[in-house]
Amino acid sequence: MLVLAFDTATPAVTAALHDGERVLAERTTIDARRHGELLVPTVEQVLQEAAVPLREVTAIVAGSGPGPYTGLRVGLMTAQGLAGTLGVPAYGICTLDAVAYGSGLTEPFLAATDARRKEVFWARYSDMRTRVDGPFVDRPADVPVNGLPVVGAAATLYPDVLGDGGGAPPYPYAGALAALAAERLAAGVPLDPPRPIYLRRPDAVVPGAPKRVTA
């Protein structure tokens, strides 16, 4: 098994390669505005560092969000495109699941990332592998923290309401995403297709009558 995983649903542009036993290489750049420019070079660097040719990859995994949509689509489109040209399957895994897996926690907790517009994407976990509720998008104050630790960058962004847990790890690092995918694939757990989790409708208003130009 050789899993190439990447995530572009947060400011982290991150890619990793996993051989079913361990992460062979991982690269992450934090740049919320250049997912489209950074992703392919990051993938190339990871392959080079692991000294693995792309055609030996057996599965592609992308974080499926939720996350700001422009960046999110770059990862999912890239996963579909690589899978189509290489003739291997592509899967999507909830981005918050990768944050959760990276926390290593064995007790219940929340994972939460920045949804912009003063909202957060969040989900509740019983341990690092098991999502029990979500994902949702809400204002930080409306997230039912109930004393649970919160991991993910939203915790450091809104420390007053989400601060318990310190927010580590802030992002869905691709090493964690790849490891989680490898684990699920090895266990025969069916994975989702690489399609986005948006949670919000597009902003658009149906117009009324045309505005008059004469008073």
Partner: peptide, 15 residues
């Protein structure tokens, strides 16, 4: 545009 460019890069890389 970004969706098309991402698709194009992935095809170019994959092929």
């Amino acid at each position: 545009l970004l969706v098309g460019v991402a698709a194009a890069k992935s095809y170019a890389l994959g092929l």
